[in-house]
Design a protein around this nucleic acid. Structure first.
Lengths: 196, 196
DNA sequence: CACGAACTTGAGGGCATCCTCGATTTCGTA
DNA sequence: TACGAAATCGAGGATGCCCTCAAGTTCGTG
């Protein structure tokens, strides 16, 4: 019934898998701009084969990133399951950026979530879907300042992505420290600056 | 006596000026990675002439950035002149990022301040020289949390640089909003997370 | 004004990446 | 096993940027 696209020949399926593995590694190491022939070489396959399977870079990303972004769902779920809404919120941020810190491709993907292909973009936004609820719950509990919105979370992702890029190699704890300062400014009682 | 390097011929001096003007514009618009031939074209000069005057990209930057970075000194001075040390500190951040927001080249330069040529690097660090004093003064007044160090300022520059890059075109107030959250977390009484 | 030094020019070689396509190999089946 | 469809291969054209250098131009002084 839902046989979907045509079945692949065995060698083709094998190569496709090798490409996905290589792409996952290379993108995680070098970011979303990594040269495609590095990926082909790591997969032990020619550049032409890569293009056979994935006609564009975006197609390759769309085959890889949704799976990687699924980790976001677990983090969101854990945040909502936390009995303390504030701890849930803070833990969500911690988990989100830890994810970005260990995978350059996620770091890039979340930053560019709007300018990427529909598939990837959807996956990113899906990951943020729950964020809205996590934020509202923490605000309802009175611990998170009321003027923090989900757009501010996007901004924070931008900010932290750069901190991660610049510091992961040399001082991998830097982003946690930066986040700690920021989070302290998100507590309801810390709010001083009036924001509309 | 201090005649310095040989005087330039009139046409050469004119071209050099045109190059500096063009480079200032192009780098401000496109960032420090802007293609050099764009600069030559905007200056109405051939790429060879650009290389005659500035054998490397770094040499060109060294001729431009120190002047642009001088604005930092004024901002620092104003911060130290403010009778309220906290307002001085907060105003310094505001001024610093406003500068980054209006000039892509400064944004890039401050981020890469360590990996740039000695000349430029010195200019960047010179701009940060006073920052140490601004921070200490604000801490002595009891308003700035004690665990904020000048390395954290570098981290904040990284963070804000990305916010600026991503949002200046579409929502130019975003960085101010982000900074407001962050600054609220830097007040002494906001400190909750223990940082060593 | 005429001459040599100073300066400018832009075509072209080098490099890294993208992407294509005709020739070749491999697979699965009859 | 032998055949056609499916898949692979990789050389090579295109692009964009870097940088150089031999030939030509301009300046300023004697």
């Amino acid at each position: 019934m839902a046989a979907g696209p045509k079945p692949l020949r065995s060698d083709a399926a094998r190569n496709r898998d090798k490409l996905l593995v290589a792409a996952t590694q290379v993108f995680a190491e070098r970011g979303l701009d990594a040269p495609l022939d590095h990926i082909a070489r790591r997969a032990g396959v020619s550049i032409g084969t890569l293009y056979n399977h994935f006609p564009t870079r975006e197609a390759l990303l769309a085959a890889i990133l949704p799976q990687r972004l699924a980790a976001l769902d677990e983090i969101s779920a854990a945040a909502l399951a936390d009995p303390d809404p504030w701890n849930g919120f803070a833990g969500f941020l911690e988990g989100l950026f830890a994810l970005q810190a260990q995978d350059h491709s996620l770091n890039d993907a979340l930053v560019q979530s709007f300018s990427l292909s529909t598939d990837v973009s959807q996956a990113c936004h899906g990951g943020f879907q729950q964020a809205e609820r996590i934020i509202e719950r923490a605000q309802a509990s009175g611990r998170l300042r009321a003027d923090f919105g989900s757009q501010d979370l996007v901004t924070l992702v931008w900010a932290m992505s750069q901190v991660i890029r610049e510091s992961m190699e040399t001082a991998p704890e830097t982003w946690r420290r930066c986040l700690a300062f920021f989070v302290d400014g998100l507590r309801a009682e810390a709010a001083r600056t009036a924001l509309r």
